[in-house]
Write a protein that binds this DNA or RNA. Structure first.
Lengths: 327, 327
DNA sequence: CTTCAGTGTGTAACCGGTTACATATAATAT
DNA sequence: ATATTATATGTAACCGGTTACACACTGAAG
C-alpha cells in the first residue's frame, strides 16, 4: 500500500505539502502541485480514510436509523439516501431500531466512536434525549424530533384532505377512517386532514385506530364492516392497512369499488399489484430521502441550511379501488 | 474523550499493559488487571475503533452488496444480516449495486480502504474478477460467484418441483412456466426443477422468459392467455411475476383459482396481501441472510467453516390462488 | 531601506491505539 | 546451582494521515 510518505518522496516534497495539496488547504506552489499530481498518478496513491478520520475526528459515514427495513415504506427511503450519499462520497450504515430507544442510543454511541458524520432518523421517540443531545448532525425523516433538528416530511394533512375528498367526490356517504397509531406524527396529521375535509359535510364517518399492519387491519375492517354494512368508503392511513381493508372486502364479498371504495396512503409499489389496483395518496418517498440526505450533508459540511422544515408534496394516484368521479 | 493513556495513568501501568488486558493478548498480572478494570470503569473508557483499525487494518464493518433494496426480496435479507451482525458487534454498510459491475467494484475498493471485514454479496456478475480477487472474506447469497466463495442459497430446484407438483396435483393440464432471466442462477435451478417435475407427465406446458418485474409480467401473461386460453395453471419464478399473472387474470376476467391456478416463488410478504392470497414456494430469506452472516463472520474470525455451500430448505405455502387438492 | 502581508515549504507533534523488543522475576528442569 | 521457560511489564516505534509552528522568500507599502 502506498502512503503519503511514498508520494512525498517521489515528488521530492514533504508530507505536509502533499497533504495540503490533497486537501486544498494552505499554500502549495505550482511546481510542487505538479510534482505531487504526477507522483499520485504514478503510484496510484489513494488516501487512507481511517488515518484521516483518526486526525480529523470525521468520517464519511452516514447512519440511517429506521424502525425496520422490512416495512415496505423504508426500502425506497433507504435507496434514496444511499444514492444521494454515494454521489457526495458518503457511505450508509443501516440501523434497524425496532422503535427501541435503547437500540437507537446504542447505534448512536457506537457510530459516534467511529466519528460518524451524521444521522438520518425515522423514529417515534419524538423527543428522546439521545437525539437532542447527540451532538452530531441529524435530520429527522417523516417524524419530528425537536425544533432544532431539521425535518423532512410529506404534506400529510393536505394529502389526507385530498384522499378524503376523493372518496366524497365519488359518492361515499359513510366513510370509515383507519387512523394510524397516535404516537406517530404523520398519523395525527392525516387524521387532522381527514377531519377537516369531512367535518362540514353531510357525510357520515367513523374513526378506528388501526396499526400499520396487514392482518390486524384486515380483522379490524372485517368487524367494522359487519357492525355497519352501510360503510361505502374506507380511507386508510397507510397502504398496508388499505390492503388489509381490500382483503377484508374480498373475504366478506363486498365488491370494490362498486359497493365499497378504498383509498390508501403511502404509494408503495405493492399498491398497483393488488386487484383492483389501490387508489392512494402517494408520498414521494424517494424525494424525501434525497432531500433529507442533502440537508444532512449540508449540515455536515457546515453550509447554511435555508429552512428547518421541508414538506414534500403528495399526489393522489387513482387506481381501481375507487370509481370514476360522478359529475 | 478519555484515551488509553488516561486509563494507563489512572491504573498506574503502561498503555501496553492496558492494551494487552483489553485485547486479552499477552500476559497481564492479576493486580494490573484489577487496576485496569477499575480505571476503565471509573473513567468510562471506551476504546476508539478508528485508532484500532489504523493499526490492525481491520474493522467491524460488513458490506452488504445487493442489486436494489427496493426489490421486495432484499429488505428481509438486509434485516437478517443486520440483526446477526449486530449481535456479533458488526456494523452493516448498505450497497445498492444495480447489478452494475463498476458500482460493485467501486464499493469494494472504497470499503477496503476502510478495512472492511467482509462482504455479503448478491450479484449476477457470476465470475466477476473483482470478487474472485477481492482478497477479503466474501459470502455469496442466493447466487454462486465461484467455487472458492461460500454460498448460501435456497433449494431452488426442489422448490420448483414442489411448486410444479402443487399445480399438477390440483388438476392443471396446461401449465405456463414463467422462467426468470437466464443470467440468474436461481432462475435456472427453478427452471430445471420445473422441467424435471413436468416432463414425464401427460400435462402440456410452455415456458416463457419473464423478468422479475410486475408490469412486464402482467403484459407477458396477458398475451400468453390470449394466445392460449386453455392455460389452466401458471408457475411463476418469482412472486412479483406471479402478482403480474394474477393481475392479468383479473383484467382478462379469468377466475382464480377456478379457471386458472397460480403459484409464485419467493414468499415475500406481499403475497398474502393479494386477493386471493398467493400460493407460493416460500424461501426462508431471513434464515439465508442469517446463515450468510454467520458464515462470513466465521471466515472473518478465521474459524473453520465446515462447508462451502449451504442450502436452505424451501416451503410450499398454500393460499388462495390454488384450489384444494383433488383426491 | 525597512516593514509587513502573502506565499511556499519542511519539521515534528499528534490522533489513539497495537505490538516488537528489551528487561525482570518466578517457577521448573537438569 | 544453573539453565530454561513462563509470566509480567514498560519503552518506543508504528499505523497513515493532519496541522501547528518555524522559517524563507517575494513584492508592495510607507
Amino acid at each position: 500500500m502506498t502512503t503519503i510518505k511514498d508520494v512525498a518522496k517521489k515528488a521530492g516534497v514533504s508530507v505536509a505539502t502533499v497533504s495540503r495539496f490533497l486537501n486544498d488547504s494552505g499554500y502549495v506552489g505550482a511546481e510542487a502541485a505538479k510534482a505531487v499530481t504526477a507522483a499520485v498518478e504514478e503510484l496510484k496513491y489513494e488516501l487512507n480514510p481511517v488515518a484521516r478520520s483518526l486526525n480529523t475526528k470525521k468520517s464519511n459515514l452516514i447512519g440511517l436509523i429506521l424502525p425496520d427495513i422490512t416495512n415496505p415504506f423504508f426500502p425506497e427511503l433507504a435507496r434514496a439516501v444511499e444514492d444521494v450519499a454515494l454521489t457526495y462520497g458518503y457511505t450508509v450504515v443501516l440501523c434497524n431500531s425496532d422503535e427501541n430507544p435503547e437500540k437507537e442510543k446504542n447505534y448512536i454511541e457506537t457510530l459516534k466512536k467511529k466519528y460518524i458524520a451524521g444521522f438520518i432518523v425515522t423514529s417515534n421517540q419524538l423527543d428522546a434525549p439521545h437525539y437532542a443531545n447527540a451532538n452530531v448532525p441529524i435530520v429527522a425523516l417523516d417524524r419530528t424530533i425537536n425544533e432544532k433538528i431539521p425535518t423532512v416530511s410529506s404534506n400529510n394533512k393536505e394529502g389526507a384532505v385530498m384522499g378524503t375528498n376523493a372518496l366524497l367526490e365519488r359518492g361515499c356517504r359513510n366513510v370509515l377512517f383507519l387512523r394510524g397509531p397516535a404516537e406517530l406524527n404523520p398519523a395525527n396529521d392525516r387524521y387532522d386532514g381527514f377531519m377537516e375535509a369531512i367535518q362540514n359535510t353531510d357525510a357520515h364517518y367513523q374513526v378506528v385506530t388501526c396499526p400499520f399492519h396487514f392482518a390486524d387491519s384486515q380483522k379490524i375492517v372485517e368487524r367494522a364492516l359487519k357492525d355497519d354494512p352501510s360503510i361505502d368508503g374506507i380511507f386508510a392511513s397507510s397502504d398496508v392497512s388499505a390492503a388489509g381493508a381490500l382483503k377484508a372486502a374480498s373475504t366478506m364479498g363486498k365488491h370494490v369499488p362498486d359497493e365499497l371504495q378504498i383509498v390508501g396512503f403511502d404509494g408503495v409499489a405493492m399498491g398497483e399489484m393488488l386487484s383492483p389496483g389501490l387508489t392512494t395518496v402517494a408520498q414521494d418517498v424517494y424525494k424525501m430521502g434525497a432531500i433529507a440526505t442533502r440537508v444532512l450533508i449540508k449540515q455536515i459540511e457546515n453550509k447554511k441550511i435555508d429552512q428547518s422544515f421541508y414538506e414534500v408534496p403528495v399526489k393522489l394516484v387513482i387506481r381501481g379501488t375507487t370509481r370514476s368521479v360522478a359529475e
